[in-house]
Measured scan of single mutants.
Amino acid sequence: LTVEVTLDGRRIELHGLSEEAHEILRHALERNADDKEIKKILEELRK
């Protein structure tokens, strides 16, 4: 799955996400998580 997010003013596409990762990010974006929170989530998903 692919998600497009804006971090530090740049639009980035995240490819190859699992369903779980996609859901976690989608929920964070829906509640307008800040860049710091999104980065933390991405860091966790990379593990």
Rank of each mutant, 00 (worst) to 15 (best):
D35H: 08
L7C: 11
A28V: 04
I38Y: 01
K36Y: 12
R31G: 08
L14Q: 01
E30N: 10
N32S: 07
E13W: 14
G9S: 02
H27K: 14
H22A: 15
G16F: 09
L14D: 01
R31A: 10
V5M: 06
T2C: 08
E4H: 09
A28F: 05
R26Q: 11
H27V: 12
S18L: 03
E37I: 08
R26N: 08
V5Y: 04
H27F: 10
E30R: 04
I24A: 07
L1C: 01
V3L: 13
S18V: 02
R26P: 00
H15P: 04
R11H: 12
L45C: 04
V3N: 03
K40E: 12
H27I: 12
I41A: 01
A28E: 01
L17D: 00
K47F: 15
N32F: 10
I38N: 00
L25R: 00
V5Q: 02
V3E: 04
K47Q: 13
D34Q: 06
L17W: 03
E44A: 11
L42E: 00
E13A: 07
R10G: 11
L14Y: 06
L1Q: 09
I38S: 00
L25M: 04
T6D: 07
I41F: 04
L42S: 00
A33H: 03
E4D: 05
R26A: 07
K39M: 14
L17H: 01
T2I: 12
E19V: 14
L45R: 01
D8M: 02
L14S: 02
H27M: 13
H22W: 15
D34L: 08
E43W: 11
L25W: 02
D35M: 08
I24T: 07
T6W: 15
V3F: 15
L42T: 01
K36I: 13
T2N: 07
L25I: 13
L29N: 03
D8N: 09
I38W: 04
E20F: 08
R26M: 14
G16W: 09
R10L: 15
T2M: 12
K47E: 09
I12D: 03
A28R: 01
L17Q: 01
S18K: 03
N32W: 08
K39P: 00
E44P: 01
R31Q: 10
R46P: 05
K47C: 15
E13Q: 13
A21E: 14
L1R: 06
D35F: 08
E30A: 11
E44C: 12
D34M: 06
V3R: 01
E4F: 14
S18W: 04
N32V: 05
A21K: 03
E37Y: 06
D34T: 13
L45T: 03
E13D: 07
I24E: 06
H22T: 11
D34S: 10
L42Q: 00
H27P: 01
E20L: 09
G16N: 12
E30I: 05
I24Y: 08
E37W: 06
L7V: 10
E20K: 12
E44W: 14
H22K: 13
G9W: 04
A21P: 00
G9K: 01
E43M: 10
E13R: 13
D8Q: 04
G9T: 02
L7D: 03
K39Q: 11
K40D: 13
I24C: 12
L1M: 11
E19S: 11
R31N: 11
S18Y: 02
